[in-house]
Nucleic acid binder design. Structure first.
Length: 426
RNA sequence: GUGGGUGUAGCUCAGUUGGCAGAGCACCGGAUUGUGGCUCCGGGGGUCGUGGGUUCAAUCCCCAUCACUCACCCCA
């Protein structure tokens, strides 16, 4: 059976019941964490006009778009959720009370080569705050990430968050190598995002490539890379100089995170800029403290996204948190949950003679809100009990000729093994 | 794109210096005419990824091909 058709396309996944229970377990934690912060859930189509995503900054996420033309429309599967949320905010910009706290749990697509932790489709939890320019929004989002990690069972310190400010870097560059062409800042960030993966020499090469998007001189590129070495706020202060708003924001953010007792898990890292073009201020990413896996999640402030889409500026900050890397990380920590199926009642009539009574009983139980499985066909009681146990049922209602004659059902509790009779009369 | 590893039962895998294909789990039946989770006994199930070559004989050796997977390259 040449099984190509049996497999889902490369980079995509099937979710059998046990897989979906585990996925829902994760999503439930996403949603419950969002609820703890009073965020509202929204959704949007998985398909959008391709123009919503196409930007000219050399981002891989745009190059890896799943897209096609149909009836003169250029459509794309969303590679990330932020543009769709931005579109929804923009469409009702006049009528929304700010600040908004919205979250999503969505499937996203990107066409790329697979490696551990990277698939072509994945699910992502997004939390965004719209309309708040201050870092209290960032602090709330970072706190939510920490709370989620706690809820999933990860020990403190297993995941930390690196934080930086593109604004700080931009202030500095505008006074130096980008003084005459500030528009090169976004493509520059795209390149230096790669520094931990390809090394500083390669980044210098890309920044100083005369045919590239930034085209600095070699000495300028070296100067930029040197700025990325800062690993604490005092070193960062040399970049921003006194009176820097970006530096003040960073300091304030650390104070706020310190107030919730998680300062040890937040680290400044000037080389973190994230790979999306639209970030403007604070950027952050959660990472595996062992350094073995890709970023667990990432986000930042994107105050100028709406204007680039043709709307009025609304300050915004958010993060995306994927399902793949976190499950890998939990697996590495031995924290992958086994989620059992749960059924309240199994109702079994021995033969067609008891079918009507069995269905009536099942209906009554369902009206009480219980999860009820009626046994299909007329298998032997032994198989019914075996299956019920396997399926995680709490009890089995047995309706045989004896019971029916007396107007009762035998109720077997599968956990205790005890049995008793209950009247079938309502 | 480069290199490595792996494709054998539904699942996880063993195996043969080339000689009719195995285990555990799962499934089905029985011990238990209407009582599961333990135990015992029995059973069904595989063109050994695909195509070609060598050979009396190939799951095993050779070539090709496809798929999966890891690393690199590349990067949300």
């Amino acid at each position: 059976m040449g099984g190509e058709i049996l497999q889902p396309p490369r980079g995509t996944r099937d979710f059998y019941p046990e897989d979906l229970r585990r996925r829902n377990w994760l999503f439930d934690h996403f949603r419950e964490t969002a609820r703890l912060f009073s965020f509202e859930e929204i959704d949007a189509p998985i398909l959008e006009h391709a123009e919503l995503f196409t930007r000219k900054a050399g981002e891989e996420i745009v190059e890896q778009l799943y897209h096609f033309e149909l009836h003169d429309r250029h459509l794309a599967l969303r590679p990330e959720m932020t543009p769709s949320v931005a579109r929804m905010v923009m469409a009702r910009a006049g009528g929304l009370r700010l600040p908004l706290r919205w979250f999503t749990v969505t499937q996203n697509w990107r066409y790329e080569r697979m490696t551990r932790g990277r698939l072509r489709e994945h699910y992502q939890w997004n939390m965004d705050v719209w309309g708040e320019p201050g870092v209290s929004a960032e602090a709330e989002l970072i706190q939510a990430i920490f709370i989620l990690l706690d809820r999933l069972g990860l020990p403190r310190g297993a995941v930390r968050i690196r934080v930086n400010s593109r604004a700080l870097l931009e202030e500095s560059l505008r006074r130096s190598v980008l003084a005459s062409r500030p528009e090169a800042f976004a493509p520059l960030c795209i390149i230096i995002d790669k520094i931990s993966k390809i090394g500083s020499d390669a980044v210098v090469g890309l920044l100083s490539d005369p045919a590239g998007t930034v085209a600095l001189s070699r000495s300028e590129a070296l100067e930029v890379v040197a700025m990325l070495d800062a690993r604490n706020l005092d070193e960062a202060a040399r970049l921003g100089g006194e009176g820097s708003q970006a530096l003040a924001d960073l300091r304030r953010l650390f104070d706020l995170i310190d107030a919730i007792g998680r300062a040890d898990d937040l680290v400044f890292d000037a080389s973190v800029v994230r790979g999306l073009a639209y970030y403007t201020g604070i950027v952050f990413e959660a990472f595996d403290a062992r350094g073995l896996l890709r970023a667990v999640c990432g986000g930042g402030r994107y105050d100028r996204l709406l204007p680039t889409l043709g709307g009025k500026a609304v300050p915004a900050v958010g993060f995306g948190f994927g399902d793949v890397v976190i499950m890998e990380l939990l697996a590495d920590h031995g924290l992958t949950p086994e989620i059992r199926r749960e059924i309240d009642d199994v109702v079994f009539g021995f033969s067609e003679e008891q079918r009507v009574a069995a269905l009536a009983l099942a209906s009554r139980l369902r009206e009480q809100g219980r999860s009820v499985q009626t046994v299909l066909g007329t298998p032997k009681l032994k198989k019914v009990l075996t299956d019920a146990g396997q399926d995680g049922a709490r009890r089995v209602w047995i309706l045989g000729p004896d019971e029916l004659a007396r107007g009762v059902a035998t109720v077997r509790d599968l956990i205790s093994g005890e049995q008793h009779e209950e009247s079938l009369a309502t």
